[in-house]
Amino acid sequence: MIDIVTDLRPLLGTARDQGARPTCLAFAASDAHAALRDGWCPLSCEYIFFHAHKRTGTPPNRGASLAAMLDTLRLDGQPAESDWPYLDAVPFDLSQWVPPIDVGQCFGRHGTNGSNLIPPIQATLDSGKPVLLLTMLSHSFYTPGIEGVIDPANDEKPDPALRHAIVAVGHGTVGGQTAILVRNSWGASWGAYGHAWLTEKFLTPRLFGTAILTEDIDVSSRAAAA
């Protein structure tokens, strides 16, 4: 039985799908950012992923770091998804991987690293803010149970080689156990329409980083100067 305490899913639209690209953090940051704005308007994952990699000089076949993603949100911002829609694959010729020249207004946002403990995550969710979660994965994450519940077997261990970013969008209890409701970027067919309940038993040993997006920033003057 699931008892819901806080549920921020009404702030977000349909769960999106990153496909085969290593863009989970771009999706998580984009959706957390969009959830804090009035009305649901998806923001460009492609734009934020591009600028995070431009900032660090890493190739686009690798995931972006949390620090680079937070810096990009703060310094570059991101436009609406429709201004630079997500690509199935980065062009082979990377000189062709550039934002459109007519990209629209970019929205910036401050962010900060958060706590890896469950109570502060719950408190942030209760304040109406999603939380970015960096986790290690294991078998049960790929096969959410009934109602999207993910509760590992006692002998199931996290795999440090499998790292993934998701967004905490609620919390409650599952069968009396504390659980965090998360939004994934594997499409609406995963879990409960793209969401799942991670029990404390699953999340606590696998969580290695969190971040919270805070106040918005006007990045237009910086963009004009560039």
Score class of each variant (00 low, 15 high):
G175D: 11
Q177H: 11
R21T: 15
A223M: 09
T56E: 00
C106P: 04
I101D: 14
P158H: 12
S140Y: 06
T124L: 06
L11Y: 10
P42W: 10
Y86N: 07
L133E: 00
L203C: 10
T58W: 04
L133R: 01
L75P: 00
V90E: 06
T14V: 09
N184P: 05
I118A: 08
F208D: 09
Q177P: 08
S82G: 12
P144Y: 03
P120L: 10
D159Q: 13
P144V: 04
V182R: 02
L43V: 11
R16A: 12
T204G: 11
G194T: 06
W97Q: 07
R21N: 15
P85N: 15
W197G: 03
A196W: 01
D3V: 12
N113A: 10
D3M: 10
F50Q: 05
K129S: 07
V131Y: 01
S115R: 05
A168K: 01
E46A: 11
V169G: 04
L134F: 06
T6V: 14
L137R: 07
N116A: 07
A80Y: 10
G170V: 08
S189Y: 09
S115L: 07
K54W: 05
A168Y: 01
V149F: 03
G145A: 05
L43G: 01
W84K: 08
Q122W: 08
D155L: 11
L181R: 04
G209F: 05
C106G: 08
S138N: 13
S82E: 15
L213R: 01
D71Q: 13
L134N: 05
L207K: 03
A223C: 08
A165P: 03
E200K: 07
D7G: 08
W97P: 03
L137H: 04
V219F: 01
I2S: 08
I146V: 13
L36W: 06
S185W: 03
T124I: 11
K157D: 13
I101V: 15
D7E: 12
T178R: 10
Q78A: 14
T178Q: 12
G172P: 04
R21I: 12
L137F: 09
L162D: 13
F141Y: 13
I121G: 02
Y142K: 12
W186P: 01
G19L: 15
S44I: 05
L213P: 00
G13Y: 09
F49K: 04
T58R: 12
L73W: 01
A211Q: 02
A168H: 03
A165S: 14
P205S: 13
T199F: 07
L213I: 07
G13L: 09
E147P: 06
C45W: 05
I212W: 00
D216S: 14
T214S: 14
